[in-house]
Write a protein that binds this DNA or RNA. Structure first.
Lengths: 341, 341
DNA sequence: CTGAAAGCGCTTACAG
DNA sequence: CTGAAAGCGCTTACAG
């Protein structure tokens, strides 16, 4: 039989309250007494029943998700996933709140973070912007004992407890590997489309992509990076321009969002002259585009996994518990038209 | 405040015991009384606290994993993951047992299943062989109220509660898509290496691979399928033979296990004449081979995910609870050397 | 058919 | 600094 607090108390010759104090590192226990209890715990191989503890404490985890008010499909999905988590929250002893902030606006993000801090939640998840003032705000949250998880886009590792997202540098390298192999001519011209180089995920994808291309496919030429703020209309316009200036374009790597605009342009091209296209995030539109051979590969991160992982991680961090790294690793999905889920 | 059984009892004017009877569909409650309680439940929006219920019941889930005594790296990893689940089992209110059976042996599998049934576990996970007698044994388990999950390789959907594994047909199609695009000549010759066509996962991969190749890359020639029982030594020998007979081989799709043998042969080839190689399962050896350009792509299923998912699913099924399909879907990982985890 | 009481493993005031 | 008792939300004998 698994030992319980009762067993510990009996073995150590103390009361339940004292066992509890030692177990939870609360003050007001003499050194000798503490030692006796710790002996008992070690001897009996006690492991505490978190569910019972939470029941006794009526523990609920107050969590807050700060999300950009971006209207691309990916962010919409992400928000929906948080809403699903809210729907499940009764069962999970969590109270989850969503705060929206303007996209790509460090100042707004910082204000939101500071406001959230006042409510003293147990944990905060945010789609980060990698700017000094954001890191400082994250540091303030953590200084108050609030767990911080970055979602999708990271800041420096020292300013958060956990990053719920993919290895974006690996994603960029993978895109380059596929691009290099899928291109029919070894000396093609490739355009790169980003949202904003203010966010770390886009910057890391870009660097990864460029480095593998330079190393393994040195004859491929790369056009200057286009920043289109993940906005479908702006993406459409800039891609149209690029194709006008470079009718011989043989590849496009779209490393941000707003692919609806890109796809509109691709549809108009002569199928025989379509460039190889690699994009990110499986949405209704990229899925259709994969299916109809407008896009060749989609690299994806699963927003459902990211949100569920964020909830688990913030709860664990709030309790000072370790995180199962293998379980929480978010993978880079590669979708071709043949393995669409 | 979330309503509890006490609130229901008060509202319905009955005792806790009666509320519990209704909640758990136990007999011995008059229709009128039952109605009153059900009214209260609906009115107050009661949702039961599973953790508290399990605590009160001292519920533990008895689960059994039936695994083939195969010595390829994948099966070894799978077993290790089950052992990790056993290590965590105290926390998860589970008692997990491993039963080993000879590989690719339907009779042995059936005996093991019947033996396990005698112990009346709550759930059984097994790496299935898709044979009528195995399906019948699974049906017997389920008839006794034991939840059945297939792991890695499936049987017909009607004979199990859940399949914890990838869509193997999609995996085969994806392999063909990559193979077709990676081959430098459109009329290459491709060899296919399987473990055994007795198991459904191998059969489905094969079919998927052949269908896409036929449809999208019709000029690629395919050699007769080699069955090497996932045994490294046998794989080595058969690949060596194939290369002797077809020195112009331009691609190899290894859809089973035992890739250590394949890699030994690849190492000996003149790098300039190495075929495009696509294999399954990321192990120490396939990882190294990817890294050193002996293998071009590895399709993978994460045994850790599969085992954790099996545990969650079997517990849910044992309680008659629904399964979160999106969460439990096992994805096909595609690894190139650039996105190795 | 129904209910009062004790208990699952832990925590929390409160008293001393 | 320490302990006895009540309680978290549910279930389980047992009695009637």
């Amino acid at each position: 039989m698994k030992p319980t607090v009762h067993d510990i108390a009996r073995f150590a010759g103390v009361s339940l309250a004292t066992v509890d104090r030692v177990l939870n590192g609360r003050p007001g226990v003499r050194g000798v007494t503490r030692d006796k209890v710790e002996q008992a715990i070690a001897q009996l191989g006690y492991v505490r029943d978190l569910a019972a503890a939470n029941l006794a404490k009526s523990r609920t985890y107050n969590l807050c998700f700060i999300l950009p008010a971006n209207d691309n499909s990916f962010m919409i999905r992400l928000r929906e996933e948080v809403e699903e988590a809210i729907a499940r929250s009764a069962v999970e002893r969590a109270r989850i709140e969503i705060v929206e902030v303007p996209a790509f606006d460090p100042g707004a993000l910082v204000s939101a973070m500071d406001e959230v801090a006042d409510r003293k939640p147990d944990g905060v998840a945010l789609v980060a912007i990698d700017a000094p003032e954001v890191r400082a705000a994250a540091d303030r949250l953590r200084a108050e004992g609030i767990a911080v998880a970055t979602l999708v886009s990271d800041v420096g590792a020292s300013s958060r407890d956990h990053f719920c997202g993919i290895d974006n540098s690996a994603a960029g390298r993978t895109a380059a590997n596929l691009m290099g192999r899928f291109l029919s001519k070894v000396d093609g011209r490739v355009a790169i489309l980003a949202g904003s180089l203010l966010v770390r995920d886009h910057r890391e994808r870009l660097e990864g992509f460029l480095s593998v291309l330079a190393e393994d496919f040195p004859r491929v030429a790369i056009l200057p990076v286009i920043e289109a703020l993940d906005d479908p209309a702006m993406v459409e316009k800039t891609v149209r321009d690029a194709l006008r200036r470079h009718p011989d374009l043989s590849g496009i790597y779209s490393l941000g969002a707003g692919n609806r605009g890109l796809i509109r342009v691709l549809k108009e091209l002569d199928p025989a002259r379509r460039p190889v296209v690699i994009a990110h995030e499986l949405t209704r539109s990229t899925r259709e585009a994969l299916h109809s051979d407008l896009i060749d590969a989609v690299l994806n991160q699963d927003p459902g996994h990211e949100v569920r992982s964020a909830v688990r991680v913030l709860k664990a961090k709030a309790d000072g518990l370790p995180v199962l790294t293998a379980q929480e690793r978010i993978r880079i999905d590669i979708f071709l038209k043949d393995n669409l889920p």
